[in-house]
Design a protein around this nucleic acid. Sequence first.
DNA 1: GTCTATACTAAGATAGAC
DNA 2: GTCTATCTTAGTATAGAC
Lengths: 181, 181
Amino acid sequence: MSRPPLARDKVLDAFEAILIEEGERAATMEATARAAGVSKGGLLYHFGSKDALESALLERLHALVEDDVAAMAASPDGPIAYFLRTSVMENDRIDRAILATSRLAQGGSARARVALRGIRDQWADVLRTHTRDATALDLVMLVSDGLYFNNALEGGSIPGPVPRGAAMDALIAMVERAAKA
Amino acid sequence: MSRPPLARDKVLDAFEAILIEEGERAATMEATARAAGVSKGGLLYHFGSKDALESALLERLHALVEDDVAAMAASPDGPIAYFLRTSVMENDRIDRAILATSRLAQGGSARARVALRGIRDQWADVLRTHTRDATALDLVMLVSDGLYFNNALEGGSIPGPVPRGAAMDALIAMVERAAKA
DNA sequence: GTCTATACTAAGATAGAC
DNA sequence: GTCTATCTTAGTATAGAC
C-alpha cells in the first residue's frame, strides 16, 4: 500500500458529505466535483464513473468496519455497551461512512444494501456469545438499528430524539440488564 | 368528502410501489405514469408536479396514522405489544405508506422527514403513560425504529433478519418485562 | 494530472390536440 | 380527462487541449 493520493480522498469526502447532508439525489458527479474543488473532468480522472465512486466509498467503509469490529471485541466495558454507545452518531469516520452508505442503499443501490447487511452480521457475530439467547441478541441489534435509523433521518448533526449522555447510560444499563449473558 | 377518483389513487399506489421496490431515484413521473398505466400528461392532470405527488402521499399517510394511533390506544393486549407487533412490515397500507415516505426522506425531502418525526412523536405520546420511565420509552421506540429500519433496507417483502412468529413473541415479552409501567 | 467543451440521455414541466 | 409533442434543465460520460 503506497501513501494515498490526497485529491482522491478529498473527492470521496465530498461525495460522502453530500450524501449525508443533502441525500442521495443531490450527490451527483457535478455537485461532488464542485464540493471537492475540482472540475467534472478532474473527478472523472480519479473515478471513471459514478459506480467507481460508490465502490470506493464501500471499500473505505469495509476497512473502517474491520477496525471497529476488532475494537468492539476487545472493549473493556463489554461489546454490548461499546456497540450501543457507538451506535449514536458521533460524526466520526465510520459513522459518516455508514450513514452515506445507507443513503445509497435507500436510493436503490443493491450493493450498498448488501454491504450494510454484511456489516450488521459481523457485529451480530461478535455479540452472540455475549448475549443471553437469540431474543437478547435481537434486542441489542434492534436498539442499535433504531439509533442508526434516527441518525439517518436527521441530517447527520441535527440532534434528534436519540438519547444522549445520562439518558444513553440509562438505556445501555436497561438493555444490558435484559440481554447480557 | 366525495367518493375518491380511482385514477388518482392508482397513480398514488404506483408511486408508492416504485418508491418501496426500486427506491427514490427510480420513482420518476415517467416511471410512475407507466406503472399506473397512464401517460405522463395524464399523470400531470391529476398531480400538477412531483411536489404535488409527494404531498398527496403524505396526506394519505397522515390519515392512515390517525387510525393507527387510535387502534393502538384501544388495543386489548396493550399499546406496547400492539406497537411492536405492527412495527414489522406486514405490507399493509400504513406500512407501505411509511416505507415510501422514508424513501423520500432518505432521498432528501425535508417534508417527508418532518412527517416521519411527527408520526414518531404521536406514537410516543400514546406509549408514554404505559412505560415505566423515559428510558423505557426510549427502549420501546428504538426497538420499533430498528424493526422499521430493517424493513426499509429490504425491498419490502424480502425477509430480512427481523424476528417473526415465536421469535417476535419472545422479543415483545422481553421488552415488556423491561419497559412496561 | 487536471481542465474545457461537448455529446447523449432522461428528468420535470408546458401547450395544445383529441 | 387523457394523450402527443416539445421545451428546458441537469446528469453521466467522452474527447481532447493544456
